[in-house]
Nucleic acid binder design. Structure first.
Lengths: 298, 298
DNA sequence: GTTCCGCATGAATCGATAG
DNA sequence: ACTATCGATTCATGCGGAA
């Protein structure tokens, strides 16, 4: 058992104890999927209720009139009322992850995403970071003046600067360079720190000795999922999983206001997080209900 | 001599031959580096003169010691007069590649790059594409609310939709997944062919065997160069090289209005492209002059 | 000739301290 | 209060000399 696992186990015992239950009593997480208009249902959620919002809204598209066909020109105005509700329901230490990418139209990239970022900031959001989702197997195709689009934006917004971030939960294996070099590196550090001030170097060393994982950066390398789920724009499980690990703890509440095929809810529940989803198409709601354990959260 | 060098040499001979000259007559490319203010010198360049602009301007609030540093608030106003001249000197079928990345400040990303894109569009530029430069060895560090920044923007702007793009020049070796699969396939194919006396499967294989390169996508994976140059942050040679291959032919003219240590000019000349550079710091101009064959182009 | 090791160093960011 | 400076933190690379 690792220290981390022991720590988590200890937390669970403590948690159950505080509730006064016996050790077999597990707090079951709930997934609350609602059918209907996004803005309307958002208004029913209490203030400061959500720990993490992860969503991939319908992208603007001039041609498609079917699912969420919002034109680029109207996109910002369409999204802002939703952004306002999201700002209200998010806890002060929560985060909002928006997966979006502008399409090329008549040879140009649309600018509505840039305008959306500026508008959300004006609305009160902090634009904390832009992660890149690097899609390993991007959509194939060839055009005379454009290569395949192999990345999407993952925009992080916050209500305050002091949001929760559990960085240790997403550490990754250290690069190959370390195999032959790290042992010596720590020796160098020893010498350097001894020469500098002689104190506190042991703390540094403890960070490096036997190091096998490092913190990731702001580029996520994930394949798009090949299995079609009857939904046009499903992102891979690993995407919400990464942000749920990074920004929430067990029994927190995750919200996806454009639930689609329900990836976020399903992943959240598998990770013992509560979740709320909103979806306007009945077929998708039924699909989600078949994959989760339902329960009302508000 | 590598195969690549030999191939290039062979091409040069052929090229000279087509011109009717003897083999010693080489059309020499010129690199024209000028010391001075960017906007001032740009005004001396004729209209529709440049095939490709590749540059990395000083970012806002960076390089304060060397370039003085432009504040994020003033950045767009500072850049626009330069953008206007760049628009004038670029050929209608040329491209403009702008390498830039906003920094984090007080927990937020600055928005001046977004505003710059919108402003350049208003100025008449088409925002054709945003490439991602993924930096594997990004600057280290750890903060409570942020991971390391491992990517920069490579913004492509054009004057018209019908710009030159030589996609075949930047094809890349097919991924390792294909190599492994291809070897396995051919082994299986061998066995099958032996067993079945040629089932037609070999025909498919022949399609695969010739295929060694594929078109890249819009994410570039390049390490930053950490060699001891006298310029603080030169981008790697491979960066301008890729865009010069993609957007120009031999003897075209490449412009870098913020030449810095001269990477763009040096690479352009090594690829038999003419180049123009502007740099305001005398030491860098001298450094560049020591690395190129000079010649006036305007 | 290869491989390995020592070393330097990056367009970083935050929080604390100093003026 | 507001700005300027500094220390602490951290990972992947190239280069040059040594084995």
């Amino acid at each position: 058992m690792t220290i981390k696992e022991a720590s988590e186990l200890n937390y669970r015992y403590t948690y159950s104890g505080l509730r006064g239950g016996n050790l077999n009593e597990v707090v079951e997480t709930k997934a609350d999927i609602r059918l209907g208009n996004c803005e309307t249902i958002l208004k029913k959620i209490p203030d400061n209720f959500i720990d993490l919002i992860v969503t991939s809204p319908p992208y603007a598209d001039r041609r498609k009139q079917t699912y969420g066909g919002v034109s680029p020109e109207r996109y910002v105005d369409w999204f802002l009322p939703i952004g306002k509700e999201l700002l209200r329901v998010l806890k002060p230490d929560g985060s909002f992850i928006l997966n979006i990418k502008e399409k090329a139209d008549k040879g140009e990239r649309s600018t509505y995403v840039l305008e959306l970022i500026l508008a959300l900031r004006k609305q009160g959001w902090l634009w904390t970071e832009e992660f890149i989702w690097r899609k390993k197997n991007s959509y194939p195709g060839k055009w005379p003046n454009r290569f395949r689009d192999a990345w999407e934006r993952l925009l992080q917004f916050n209500k305050t600067k002091n949001f929760n971030m559990y960085q240790d939960a997403v550490k990754v294996p250290i690069g190959d360079w370390a195999n032959g070099r790290l042992k010596n590196l720590s020796e160098i550090d020893k010498i350097r720190d001894n020469a500098k001030n002689g104190s506190g170097f042991g703390k540094n060393i403890s960070n490096w000795l036997g190091k096998e994982t490092v913190y990731p950066d702001n580029v996520l390398h994930l394949p798009t999922e090949c299995n079609n789920k009857n939904h046009s724009a499903a992102f891979p499980d690993a995407l919400p999983e990464w942000f749920i690990k990074l920004f929430t703890q067990e029994n927190d509440i995750v919200l996806d206001p454009f639930a689609g095929s329900g990836t976020t809810l399903r992943v959240a529940q598998s990770m013992s997080r509560n979740s709320i989803g909103i979806e306007i198409i009945p077929e998708y709601v039924n699909l989600i209900k078949s994959q989760i354990t339902q329960g009302r959260l508000f």
